[in-house]
Amino acid sequence: MKRVLMICAIITVLTTVGIVYVLFSESFSFFQQVSLWDFLTDTKWSPISTEKHFGILPLLSGTLLTTFIAMIFAVPMGITIAIYLSEYAPKKFRYYIKPLLEILAAIPTVVYGFFALTVVTPFLQGYIPGLAGFNALSAGLVMGIMIIPMISSLSEDALYAVPKSLREGAYGMGSTRLQTSFNVILPAASSGIIVSVILAFARAVGETMIVTVAAGNMANLTADPRETVATITAFIVNMSTGDVPQNSIEYQTIFAAGVTLFVFTFLLNSISFYIKKRFQEKYD
């Protein structure tokens, strides 16, 4: 029986091996035709035009732009909610509100995309002149709403794990809840909170449908959130819906973009895993 169970566990390893193998073998043929230097420094990305360019920078900037908008919005909100729920809110309130917040995380992302495109963008266009129909801002903000519950619930777990004695010590010195939260609890829970932020960051980088639907599909090296951009993920989706012959350079660009995304999220996940392991047993 142990053997059977072990084989099932090993499937997870095979999945990783499969991902790495598929991404790197297909990208290998890509990088035989396009030099890694061009890939990383060319400022244009136009794999299906007549004049082909294969610079990942415009896609990377689109990804980072939408991600940063989401993070600027979601990190302060998420951490504030976590502090409020763990240090301020009555128990009953917390009991009912948490599942409601978790619903936000359960909504399929294509639905968020629809929301960004048909509600948030028209609303913002009333206030922000020059906001394109597909833009990084709406996609980023809605992505922020999506990752708020992720940050707030992981951060709250971290805050909750801080021993009661620390809290009581601070209250005993005459601190208010605010002072206790920011000077005692937050620093003590910092590793857990950093982990939640990094995981949310990785999630935003890999998020696909919101940006595909609402941010557009135009590789654009810009930092202007009003403009149409394309993220790495949106490019992969749009390329997949078209008819691209297998083994062509166009087909391989999907994997070159995929490998960039994978390396990125892999690094973020590894950092968060390291922090988690390193600081886990601080209070045990």
Partner: peptide
Amino acid sequence: LEINLANLAGVPSIIYGLLGLQ
């Protein structure tokens, strides 16, 4: 196995699509 699992849980879903495709 643990490190591997933590990483897999964080792989974007679209990457699984590329794996499935190939």
